[in-house]
């Protein structure tokens, strides 16, 4: 008797889990060794406003997907949006990646779980009191030791209302966590300089204090050697980081752009002009 009640309880829970939540979150779609779903930050879309959506990935242990610059191998996820007239998607916003690999081949990406963000702007002339179906065709390369290309069709339906959008409590934690992992603009008081030496770039950072750890993830491919160790030298006000040049770099570059990681939750977007002056001592 007791067993059957417990069984019934579990069964009801199971059924509840199976019922997709309306609005903020469609059911997850399978990709190789993982799932993806499209989630909304707000409960509805308002004409003339912007709403963030998320491509929410979950991967099986050991499998990974790639950052916008995948590094030495791999390929970032690609999305083709299918949006109703009056809705326009912006650029994907990518959380700071992890270094994947320890040998001569180093990639940049994400394992376990990651959510890529995308802003969607609604035209002021969009008519309210209807539902908008947002669709996306996703292509994603999922790798562990081997790589498996996957495709997924994901979609989400949200109401359009003429009142200002309100956040959806069901996804607020997810969006907060994803935003925390996005690289932030570097504080205005920080100073950066990049020197162009024969075989390397030296990134000098003045952050107003001692820094023990720093690593750089290049946004452009073929600028620095992804697998080379990044040697850090502490200075009283920051650090100097030596970035070995990529063998594929045959011409001088004007800027070095990428993500500077000081700790897991301290990542910054930097875009520094490359000086052709000698390294200041």
């Amino acid at each position: 008797m007791r067993n059957s009640i417990v069984g019934l309880l579990f069964f009801s829970l199971f059924i509840l889990v199976l019922i997709p939540l309306p609005g903020a979150r469609a059911s997850a779609t399978t990709i190789p060794h993982g799932t993806v779903d499209l989630v909304a930050e707000n409960q509805w879309i308002s004409p003339g406003s912007q709403t963030y959506f998320g491509l929410n990935f979950h991967l099986e242990k050991g499998w990974h997907i790639y950052w916008v610059n995948p590094g030495d191998s791999g390929q970032p996820p690609r999305v083709a949006w299918h949006l109703p007239a009056g809705l326009t998607s912006g650029e994907l916003e990518w959380p700071a990646p992890r270094r994947l690999g320890t040998s001569t081949i180093v990639d940049f990406g994400y394992d376990d779980a990651v959510m890529l963000l995308v802003p969607v702007r609604a035209s002021p002339t969009l008519s309210a009191n209807q539902a908008a179906q947002l669709g996306a065709e996703l292509r994603v390369l999922v790798c562990r030791e081997i790589c498996i290309p996957g495709k997924a069709q994901i979609s989400l339906t949200l109401p359009i209302k003429s009142v200002p959008p309100e956040p959806d409590a069901r996804t607020s934690e997810l969006f907060a966590a994803s935003r925390k992992s996005l690289p932030r603009p570097a504080p205005g008081s920080w100073e950066f300089h990049v020197s162009d030496l024969k075989d390397s770039f030296v990134l000098t950072a003045k952050l107003g204090g001692k820094t023990t750890r720093a690593s750089f993830f290049p946004l452009e491919e073929s600028q620095i050697d992804n697998s080379a160790a990044q040697k850090i030298v502490q200075t009283p006000t920051g650090f100097q980081l030596t970035l070995r040049k990529s063998d594929q770099l045959l011409h001088p570059i004007e800027r070095l752009k990428g993500v500077l990681e000081l700790s897991a939750n301290q990542t910054y977007l930097i875009d520094v002009a490359v000086g052709n002056t000698q390294l200041a001592r």
């Binding site: 191998s73 081949i105 030791e145």
Partner: peptide, 18 residues
Amino acid sequence: TAATRPYGCSVKYKGTWF
């Protein structure tokens, strides 16, 4: 164009895990 980033799967060398 004399040098580009090669694309594809990583070479599956001995001792690499990915």
